[in-house]
């Protein structure tokens, strides 16, 4: 009885999650009347705007990851090593982007860094791209910091640092050659989440008027019949791939640990 009830609940839940995915896939395949075809995907991939926005978002995601890693790894390392009393505060700050809606943050950017301000970032294309990248970094900060901090917890930061120092290593060497390789798995899982977030982000890119993938999706949704669903399937696959890669690197790291 109990098992039957549990199976029923689970089945209903799974139905709810699977139906929209089937609906989405079905629509994306039915551009040609009567038969399933990949026409919508062909149309999408042939669209120069798709390539442009997709490429733009990929580059932005990679830049955000590089910036995020360079910012978060040294900070989390330093806080653990020298300023442990600040840890709860830093952790709290990194969670704030989950509290303050992205639309509010970007609203602040637009008013704070407009052409008449002391730092006119929105005045130039490069400046706006930079601002958007920093905005993405803010959005991914909670995930990145959590991942790296958890990674640092599993190693003995103080001993490793002292050992490296007594061998004559400077701070950059310590970070790049001792700490980074040890938290690589954590950094990678943070990076994949960041990638998924940036690829699907809509609000910031739309309000800063940048040609990213998210606003393009919305534009297509308002103007085309079948292409949006092909795009949605692509977006879903990207999210899946990122999460799958996280699982993969985590499992991979467990093996290396067991072998030691």
């Amino acid at each position: 009885m109990k098992r039957f009830l549990a199976a029923l609940i689970l089945l209903l839940g799974i139905t709810y999650f699977v139906l929209p995915l089937i609906g989405m896939a079905e629509f994306s395949l039915s551009m040609r009347r009567g038969v399933y075809s990949l026409d919508a995907y062909r149309k999408v991939i042939a669209d120069p705007q798709f390539r442009q926005t997709f490429g733009y978002s990929v580059v932005m995601a990679l830049l955000t990851i590089v910036f995020g890693v360079l910012l978060v790894v040294p900070t989390a390392f330093w806080v653990r090593l020298r300023m442990p009393h600040l840890r709860p505060y830093v952790e709290f700050i990194t969670l704030l982007p989950l509290v303050i809606p992205a639309i509010v943050v970007v609203f602040g950017y637009i008013r704070l860094y407009n052409t008449s301000s002391w730092l006119p970032l929105t005045g130039s294309t490069f400046g706006t791209n930079l601002l958007l990248m920093l905005g993405y970094a803010t959005l991914s900060l909670p995930y990145m910091y959590r991942a790296v901090d958890t990674g640092l917890r599993t190693i003995d930061v103080a001993t490793l640092t002292e050992a490296a120092q007594s061998l004559g290593a400077g701070w950059i060497t310590i970070l790049a050659r001792v700490i980074m390789p040890n938290v690589l798995v954590a950094v990678l899982s943070g990076a994949f989440v960041t990638f998924a977030i940036v690829m699907g982000e809509f609000t910031m890119a739309a309000l800063l008027n940048r040609p990213a993938f998210g606003p393009y999706l919305q534009l297509m949704g308002a103007n085309k019949a079948y292409e949006p669903f092909a795009l949605a399937v692509i977006a879903f696959i990207i999210t899946w791939a990122c999460m799958g890669l996280i699982q993969l690197v985590t499992r991979f790291s467990k093996h290396t640990k067991a072998a030691r």
Partner: peptide, 9 residues
Amino acid sequence: NFAGVPLAF
């Protein structure tokens, strides 16, 4: 994590 525009579609 699958929120946003694709979910609406």
